[in-house]
Computed example of a mutant assay.
Amino acid sequence: MTPRELVGVAEVPGGPPLRLFRRGGDFMIVLDRNELMSTRMSGSEVALGTLACDRIASRPAPRLLIGGYGMGFTLRAVLARVGADAEVVVAELVPGIVEWARGPMAALTAGCLDDPRVTLVMGDVGAVMREPRQGFDAILLDVDNGPDGLTREANGDLYVPSGLADAKRALRPGGTLAVWSAAPDPSFTRRLIKTGFEVEEVRVRARENGKGATHLIWLARSPNG
């Protein structure tokens, strides 16, 4: 078996560090003993992007916010679906993630962070949602293991009623909040509904070939105003 090589360590504000490993041509981002993401299992991250774009396909010049760059699978899926008039804001809290994207994983990144439609914001996606200039057609959140949190305690603020209210205010009427999770969470579904969203749950496989673990994506539509 090809040995796993430690490529780098990234500090997480308010949380334990992330480690990037390489095994052959595959990369893995690991927290303690938990593999958060890998190049072998990108199907649900891609689905997060494509499903959200499908919900806003008829909107001209769409504006999207992606919370968490990760390995860029969601961003690249979005860029493949939207036109030249789209604006995609990517909020990434961990500087090391971006350093890895531009360094050891540059071939995988394929220049997506330098796409003219992309604006990279180094910081908390929650703060971006609370900024005066909002008006997003879609907000895509994949900043942790899901609403239960794992990487850092403060990530949970995005999934509580106040965080969901921030997302709702940041969306244009009829916009979509898409949330990735490693597992179902009925209490989170109830919170979305209580916040005023129309909620659809979609189960997707971790691998693009339809295999692997089953993950969950919430597609929450904001009211039309």
Rank of each mutant, 00 (worst) to 15 (best):
P3L: 09
P3G: 09
G8L: 01
G8Y: 09
P13Y: 11
P13G: 08
G14A: 12
G14I: 02
P17A: 06
L18P: 05
R19M: 11
R23G: 13
R23M: 10
G25P: 14
G25I: 03
I29C: 15
V30E: 15
D32R: 02
D32Q: 10
R33Y: 02
N34G: 06
L36K: 05
L36M: 12
M37D: 15
T39P: 03
R40D: 13
M41L: 03
M41H: 15
M41T: 14
E45F: 04
V46F: 12
A47G: 14
G49Y: 06
G49N: 14
D54L: 12
D54C: 11
I56D: 13
I56E: 14
A57W: 03
A61C: 07
P62S: 07
P62G: 05
L64T: 02
L65Q: 02
L65V: 06
I66G: 00
G70D: 02
L75M: 07
L75H: 07
R76V: 03
V82C: 08
A84H: 04
D85Y: 09
D85K: 05
D85M: 08
A86R: 15
V94G: 00
G96N: 00
G96F: 00
A101Q: 02
P104W: 10
A107Y: 00
L108Q: 12
G111F: 12
D114P: 14
D115I: 08
D115Y: 07
V121E: 14
V121L: 08
M122V: 04
G123M: 04
D124K: 08
V125D: 04
A127S: 11
A127L: 13
M129S: 04
E131D: 01
P132R: 13
Q134S: 12
D137G: 11
A138G: 09
A138S: 09
I139A: 04
I139W: 03
L141S: 06
V143G: 10
D144V: 07
P147I: 05
R152Y: 11
R152P: 01
R152H: 05
E153Q: 06
N155E: 01
G156N: 08
D157T: 07
L158A: 06
Y159W: 04
V160D: 13
V160C: 09
P161V: 10
A165C: 09
A167Q: 13
K168H: 11
K168T: 02
R169S: 12
R172H: 06
G174C: 08
A183L: 03
R191S: 11
R191Q: 10
L192I: 05
L192M: 11
L192V: 04
L192K: 02
L192P: 08
K194P: 04
V199F: 08
E200S: 05
V204S: 10
R205S: 15
R205A: 07
A206S: 15
N209L: 03
N209K: 10
K211T: 15
G212I: 12
H215C: 08
L216T: 15
R221C: 01
S222G: 15
P223L: 05
